[in-house]
Nucleic acid binder design. Structure first.
Lengths: 137, 137
DNA sequence: CTCTCTGCAAAGAATTTGCAAACAC
DNA sequence: GTGTTTGCAAATTCTTTGCAGAGAG
């Protein structure tokens, strides 16, 4: 994932391309494998981009469908790329590690949820939290 | 569930029984069928018990194993009696409606995730997002 | 030139903390 | 008495908002 891809998503949605948005996209592209948070991005762009602009840019990226966020309950919302590939994100609530999991493993459970409740879980936009192998026990 | 049961759990754990804790337990016992939040409890005890004491009492109840909380993503943490905690929350990303789902429906899939990845999902502690029946399509 | 976007500063919501006085045991 | 707990007030952390000026298209 490159900053250009993120910018293209914004442009396609009609958002204007500004220096602030370029900077946020650059950070998201560079750090997307890690624990990406609004305060973290704002800190790494301190003096360059205002925190409120960081929030507004992340919101624009989400609305463009290329980013999504999960609330881990403790601390800030965690952002991750809404990949075109069908897989889940498992975020370790202890170390923040993100594990990827093929959607087939949870597909049956999602269908069971829909059968039971009529509710459609959004497979490409939800993360599960818990503890990774290293942080268990 | 009565306030006395909650108080007994505190006493058993060695916490002192005070007027403030009695008041918080009374509210928890009365309203446990609804979505209990710390700010909500504090509001209903305004002028009687301080908000910080409400938080500290809820923490004591959780440590006593009789209460637990869930993060619904937006807004404050939601508290449940531990014996009623066997359900998952599904939040509609369109209308915000919260649907409850018995954990048994997803239990097998969660075990499959652990087998596949070594990751232990903490299912009941966080909500899933998606679209409810009314907002689908 | 128009309408969007930005920085700033402040508000807002949820939660935590330091401390001296009050209280349970 | 002694150690816990409380209320108060302020600090923290995350996020949102109002607004006037700067900038993209």
């Amino acid at each position: 994932m490159t900053a250009e891809t993120l910018i293209a998503a914004l442009r396609e949605r009609g958002w204007r391309i500004t220096a602030a948005r370029l900077a946020v996209c650059r950070v998201v592209a560079e750090l997307h494998a890690e624990h990406l948070t609004a305060p973290g991005i704002a800190a790494s762009l301190a003096g360059e981009v205002d925190q409120s602009t960081v929030y507004r840019t992340l919101e624009a990226l989400e609305e463009s469908g290329i980013l999504s966020h999960t609330h881990l309950g403790h601390g800030p919302a965690v952002y991750h790329l809404a990949d075109e590939d069908r897989h889940q994100h498992l975020i370790c609530e202890v170390c923040g590690e993100v594990t990827e999991l093929d959607a087939a493993v949870v597909g049956e459970a999602l269908q069971a949820i829909t059968r039971a409740t009529g509710f459609f879980p959004d497979a490409s936009h939800f993360a599960l939290s818990g503890r990774c192998r290293r942080c268990t026990g």
